[in-house]
Computed example of a mutant assay.
Amino acid sequence: MHQIISLGLILATAFLFNARAAADMASVGFWGGAVGQLFFAPVVFFFLVHTVVYFVVRLVRGRDRVRSYTRSRLNYVAAVLTILGTIGAAAGPPA
């Protein structure tokens, strides 16, 4: 459940901050960039960050002290980092 909540927050944030840029891309026929900016980039970044954070914490704290990959609360840490990255990418200079 933690992972579903995290992904929902990430996708809502990505849509909120990148909808205008994605609409501009789609209007000139660059659908891949629009879909990538709204969906694939935040999701891939989330899973990369979550995987690194999960396995580092699991290495430090031990296998028995961390819940499973999808049920750990480390999903929220990865979600916050991904949301900050999404906001930062949206605030950056246009590509």
Rank of each mutant, 00 (worst) to 15 (best):
F15A: 04
T86M: 08
M1W: 03
A26E: 03
G8P: 02
H50K: 15
V80G: 05
H2Q: 11
F30P: 00
G32I: 08
H50Y: 07
G85A: 15
I10E: 11
V57E: 09
G62S: 08
Y76R: 02
V35N: 04
T51E: 02
A41T: 15
V66S: 07
V49A: 15
Y76T: 04
D24N: 14
F17L: 13
V35R: 05
V53G: 07
V53K: 07
Q37T: 13
G36F: 09
D64M: 04
F30W: 03
L81D: 01
A89T: 10
L81N: 03
S68T: 15
S72M: 01
L38P: 10
V57L: 14
P93I: 10
A95R: 13
G88T: 04
L48T: 12
G88W: 09
G62P: 06
L38N: 11
S6G: 14
T51Q: 06
G92V: 01
F40V: 14
L59H: 11
A41D: 08
L38T: 11
T86L: 10
R63L: 01
R58H: 04
V35A: 13
F46D: 08
G8K: 00
F47M: 09
G85F: 14
A12I: 12
G92H: 06
R67M: 09
F15T: 12
A78H: 07
L48F: 14
S6F: 04
L7N: 11
I10C: 06
Q37M: 14
L59E: 09
L48H: 01
T51D: 00
T86W: 01
T51N: 04
S68N: 12
G92Q: 02
R65V: 02
P42Q: 07
A78Q: 10
P42S: 08
D64K: 12
Y76V: 05
V60P: 05
P94I: 11
V43R: 06
G33R: 06
R63A: 10
N18C: 06
F40T: 14
Y76W: 13
A91Q: 13
H50F: 05
V77N: 04
L81V: 13
A34P: 03
T51W: 12
I87R: 05
P42M: 07
F47T: 04
L38K: 13
N18D: 08
M25Q: 14
A26Q: 02
V66W: 03
M1Q: 09
A79E: 11
T51H: 09
I83P: 05
L59V: 01
F40E: 03
Y76Q: 02
V44A: 15
Y76G: 10
